[in-house]
Design a protein around this nucleic acid. Structure first.
Length: 435
RNA sequence: GCCCCGGUAGUGUAGCGGCCUAUCAUGCGGGCCUGUCGAGCCCGCGACUCGGGUUCAAAUCCCGACCGGGGCGCCA
């Protein structure tokens, strides 16, 4: 028996293949005396190995049917059509090999009919991912990311990588992870903001990055991670922030659409009905939102709180909108790099809300260096600390804007998952550093 | 940073001062069964997070530590 001859279970054609070699994980063994049914799982799904005591001989039969669940075995055998089996065929073993025996008991069941807590699952993620419906989440995530890349590239964006080890944080506010950098203090990047903006002065015109962002926030909620995948893009020569929102909408729509089309079988497996949010995504000004919520007796100050977001989500859902923008937040609430709406307390900023949760935020950036420095001072930052950044604004910086979007939140909301941690293979949060 | 809640076999749970040498399911070990597919049936195995305290008596009450869960704030 040779593993190079192995076929994935979904590649087997019972009309053509008389004999095959398969390999995978022993999911279950149902022994019924002289006949035993072994469900072998590989990337292509489940294939049934039917072992007959009378065919194999007692010794081999016992050896095979006593293998621990989740062990890895390879089987060469005869392909036999069978109406008893869901897939329409089974394999009658001729020879088999134990490639790696699993210990017992398992740290968690793969197909057991008991509930498993998320924490236990994350501690044993390698085993958790053996479950089809868990694997499906990450396959859909990959499909959506791939669609996002395609859409951005089609629109002239260039993928870039910016440093994750920084001397100073991007924006104050969010907490930074401090680290020792050859004896100096350094920080993990919480956003590529400053770097993607610097690139706007280069002529690349449109750049995007899909990379980890680190936030040392003491948040312990179902929507926060200490390390998450941030999708950032920045585009030059925009007329207004509407150009950025158009692009965000196009991108999110293509991702959801890809999940529906290319991930249909997996969505079915998860029992999820995913619909494309109605377009165009409405653009509501913060003022409008504030009025609407106050009509519902919900007080709004300078920002939407979690409750306000949820109520707005419900109001919009009633109208059939799952994705919408809230635009022109109070300038005071937004970081220094956002452009003010002159003569008003507002700013050219926006948040993308998806099913009542903030998914992305962006806007038009302030590209005039004097005003930029003024805004920095207003926010209590010293422009001297950002000389490397401001420099790029003094020698020809076009008007530009961009966005940062949390990939895990997008996946979480699209798939109606309760916890963002479910969308990260090895999540990092306040308490979890292993695995 | 603030506010709630919880830690019982490998896994998920019941019990919340004495009836607990702790329930049920799943799992694991053994037995029966040639068409199963959440197989079934029989027998068995396996646990109170740690450290103090209260009490005649603690899984159960109190304090602390450690580890988790949820919410708020903040954010993507």
């Amino acid at each position: 028996m040779n593993l190079r001859e192995r076929k994935r279970s979904d590649e087997i054609n019972p009309d053509k293949d008389a004999e095959v070699t398969v390999a995978g994980w022993v999911q279950t063994i149902r022994k019924k005396g002289k006949i035993a049914f072994i469900l072998l799982r590989d990337k292509g799904g489940i294939v049934q190995i039917t072992a007959l005591k009378n065919e194999m001989g007692e010794e081999e039969y016992n050896r095979l049917t006593k293998v621990q669940r989740e062990s890895v075995i390879a089987v060469r055998g005869k392909v036999q059509k069978s109406e008893y089996v869901k897939r329409g065929f089974e394999i009658l073993p001729i020879e088999w090999r134990l490639l790696n025996e699993a210990e017992a008991p398992l740290p968690m069941g793969v197909v057991d009919k008991v509930n498993i807590e998320l924490d236990t699952r994350l501690d044993n993620r390698f085993m958790d991912l053996r479950r089809e419906e868990i694997k499906a989440i990450f396959e859909i995530k990959a499909i959506m990311l791939s669609a996002i890349r395609r859409t951005l590239e089609k629109s002239g964006f260039v993928e870039v990588q910016t440093p994750k080890i920084l001397k100073a944080g991007a924006e104050g506010g969010a907490t930074l992870f401090k680290l020792d950098y050859f004896g100096k203090n350094a920080y993990l990047a919480q956003s590529p903001q400053l770097f993607k903006q610097i690139l706007m002065s280069t002529g690349l015109e449109r750049v995007y990055e899909i990379a980890p962002a680190f936030r040392a926030e003491l948040s312990d909620t179902t929507r926060h991670l200490s390390e998450f995948t941030s999708l950032d893009f920045e585009m030059a020569f925009i007329e207004s922030q509407d150009d950025v929102m158009d692009m965000v909408e196009e991108m999110v729509d293509s991702a959801v659409n890809a999940a529906i089309n290319e991930g249909k079988d997996r969505l079915d497996m998860l029992g999820i009905e995913l619909n494309r949010p109605k377009r165009p995504y409405p653009r509501l000004t913060f003022e409008e939102v504030k009025r609407t919520l106050e009509e519902k007796d919900k007080k709004v100050d300078n920002d939407l709180d979690t409750e306000g977001e949820k109520i707005l989500g419900e109001i919009m859902a009633e109208k059939g909108y799952y994705a919408y923008f809230v635009v022109e937040y109070p300038e005071e609430e937004k970081p220094f790099y956002i452009m003010e709406k002159d003569g008003t307390p507002w700013s050219y900023s926006f948040d993308l809300e998806f099913k009542g949760q903030e998914l992305a935020s962006g806007g038009q950036r302030e590209h005039r260096p004097e005003i930029l420095m003024e805004r920095m001072k207003k926010k209590g930052l010293d422009p001297k600390d950002f000389e490397f950044y401001i420099k790029a604004f003094r020698y020809g910086m076009p008007p530009h804007g961009g966005v940062g979007l949390g990939i895990e939140r997008l996946i979480q909301k699209a798939l109606n998952l309760e916890n963002v941690r479910e969308t990260t293979i090895f999540p990092r949060d306040r308490f979890r550093l292993v695995p």
